[in-house]
Amino acid sequence: MSDLLLLTRIAGRPAAFRAGDIGSIVELTEITPVPRAPDFIAGLAALRSRALTVIDSRKALGLLGPSETTDMRAPVVEVAGHSYALLVDRVDDVVPAAGEPAPTPATLGACWAQVAHGMIETASGPAVLVDVAALVAGPGETAA
């Protein structure tokens, strides 16, 4: 397991991704919306010659309320051969993990618990360690 974490904020809360899960960070300039797509898919974007599916992380968690995305930088992850860009509130920093992830506490709430690997301590405080495969599957998949 990689010791480095990418710290972000999703719906105002700290969320960490394993640096090993992240392929790159892209600056999203234009998102092509997809009619009839589930709510949590913001659309398509291009990364060089690849097409990225842009995931609205907040909605993928099943959280209500408008997106607070201010940062157009998005982490790019690859799940089952497909590339996704994750829209988050903002991308903070890459920090080393302090210790192993702790089990998901029960009080995290259903939405977060679905996508959490656990909790992890970092130099900038604790964060939820996100399971990218669960995140890109969206709320419908995990709720079922």
């Binding site: 092509t32 997809v34 589930p38 398509l44 291009a46 060089r48 097409a51 890109v136």
Partner: peptide
């Protein structure tokens, strides 16, 4: 990706000459 395939309307993504993705 599976989430878009499940819509049943689209057969793939295409990058146009200008790099813009469409369905």
């Amino acid at each position: 990706p599976p989430a878009l395939e499940a819509i049943g309307l689209y057969g793939g993504t295409v990058l146009l000459d200008d790099g813009k993705p469409i369905l």
